[in-house]
């Protein structure tokens, strides 16, 4: 991974900088308000920016989606093209009977027809978890199935 340096901008927000493989220096500025700026540094004057792109909250989300960060979003954008197939994000309630048990124990696919394609735990994403993976409270389950099957799965995990 490229080395990223972080600089605090008092009263404004925070700035992350890195150098691309081709030697271009790029900064992402995160304003406190959520607005972002992408700046490309000038080769002649490396202290200044030659191009600055202003992004609203929505723009940032769109751009992040297009740049395709996580495997989850790529997998999801793939299945959303299919007719009759739905995707849902389900947070496991603390105290749910499946929290602490493995995916295999829950026999979710047998019972609902829906498949768990990923788990999001805090900042971490576990793509394609096997049946031996244990679910934890507050995990977000990403599941693919029919609308009815997903509703059943939601009933099981949010109980």
């Amino acid at each position: 991974m490229t080395e990223v340096t972080e600089t605090q901008l008092p009263g404004v927000g925070v700035r992350h900088e890195f150098t691309t493989v081709s030697g271009e220096r790029v900064a992402v500025l995160s304003h406190r308000t959520g607005r972002r700026e992408i700046a490309v540094y000038d080769r002649a004057d490396p202290d200044a920016c030659s191009t600055v792109l202003h992004l609203s909250n929505d723009d940032t989300r769109t751009l992040a989606e297009l740049l395709g960060g996580s495997p989850v979003s790529e997998a999801v954008s793939g299945v959303q093209q299919l007719k009759g197939v739905a995707v849902d994000w389900i947070r496991i309630r603390p105290g749910n009977q499946h929290a602490g048990a493995t995916i295999g124990d829950g026999r979710f696919r047998t019972r609902t027809g829906a498949s768990i394609v990923a788990l999001v735990r805090g900042d971490e994403t576990l793509p394609a978890p096997g049946p031996e993976v244990a679910l934890e409270a507050e995990d977000v389950v990403v599941a693919v199935g029919t609308t009815g099957g997903l509703r059943q799965l939601r009933d099981l995990l949010e109980a």
Binding site: L9, G11, V12, L29, Y41, V52
Partner: peptide, 17 residues
């Protein structure tokens, strides 16, 4: 002036602090 990305900017803002 789109200078928030500039190298001297954190120094300027810290001076204001």
């Amino acid at each position: 002036l789109d200078r928030l990305g500039n190298r001297e900017t954190p120094a300027v803002l810290n001076l204001l602090v």
